[in-house]
Design a protein around this nucleic acid. Sequence first.
DNA 1: GTCTATATGGTGATAGAC
DNA 2: GTCTATCACCATATAGAC
Lengths: 213, 213
Amino acid sequence: MPSRATTPRPDRGAWRKTEIIEAAAQCFMERGYHATGVDDVARRLGCTKGRIYHHYASKTDLFFAVHREGMARLFAAQEAILPLPENALEALCAMLTAHANAMLEHHTYESVVAQGVQVHRFEATTPDQRDTMAALIAERDRFEALFKARLARGMAQGSIRESDVSITGKVLLGALQWSIIWYRPRPDDDAAHRADLAARMVAPLIEGLRPPG
Amino acid sequence: MPSRATTPRPDRGAWRKTEIIEAAAQCFMERGYHATGVDDVARRLGCTKGRIYHHYASKTDLFFAVHREGMARLFAAQEAILPLPENALEALCAMLTAHANAMLEHHTYESVVAQGVQVHRFEATTPDQRDTMAALIAERDRFEALFKARLARGMAQGSIRESDVSITGKVLLGALQWSIIWYRPRPDDDAAHRADLAARMVAPLIEGLRPPG
DNA sequence: GTCTATATGGTGATAGAC
DNA sequence: GTCTATCACCATATAGAC
């Protein structure tokens, strides 16, 4: 990375692309994939769709880019808390809390992830798009497996209550992912507020409803 | 209602209407509201859209009808388990189990409910549709309040662990509602299988992850 | 790289025959 | 009550000027 000091911004092309998927993510979140037109995204950027089609081949590609970024942020949140404690219950608590935080912080992108591949299951045309779709599904499975592995380990080591690992995993993640339905970021929303909310979301999952004693 | 004995079916009009929203529900579930055309619904019924537009004024009205039916079935599932035990933890356990069962059994309709009013928040045009929308939102709030009330009562009587009632309510319901994402009914899916699945879904919510002792 | 203008296909909805 | 035929509109995507 030498001899680049002249340009204030290293590569404007990359910046443009992220700027576009950011706008697209907001539109897709607010109105859903099918209801948003490429013109809507352009209007939000203050430009015309010419710019968008210069950077992305199709609206579908745009959606996939947003989805990919959303998944990347979920994985990043998990990597940020490594290494995890050996006790699986403590580890899972940290993982769920980090996930809840990520769902809230990246609410825009995760809303799009939730719409998910399902939107395109019946209309993936080009083989290239089919590959992208398969890759995204694989990513989601890999993410879910992260949690299921800890669950299984915890049950083996006795730190987590016995239950159906597969279903419990889906229930736990679903409980947090459903926040995209009811959570709406507010102007005064800061990291502390989100952390507080995340803790309140995870607590009942760890402790259950049954009172102590 | 006299002199109608000749017709084998009392009111075929009503049957037609339910037949239509059944087909619409399946289409909306599979491809989403915007992606499904009125022609798709007609094709599934083996007719043309003339019939559909004779019974429903617009595609939006069709969606609302499906949504309304979905909510009605959720309420029906709760009413079916009345009266509930006085102990709020036991009551909530029964409510959650019934809700999980309903989500699985009426998977088609509840998928549409989940797409929900959000789809139309930004595009409800006529004042009539706006009223319908408001009514559906009110129904959903009323349903959620059912669970929150029990939670609050349980915490007051000591049968349920203390937590943030509002958030815990959303987390519990979200955990079950997320099943529309991963659950796909199978040919051999009977009531017993759904009941078993529902029990496995609710168990970790009641007990939490922390092991006994 | 970004814009304007346009081609093209599809979709909600209506009119009128039967 | 249901169908066929059709309209009017909108959205994706492209072509070419700047």
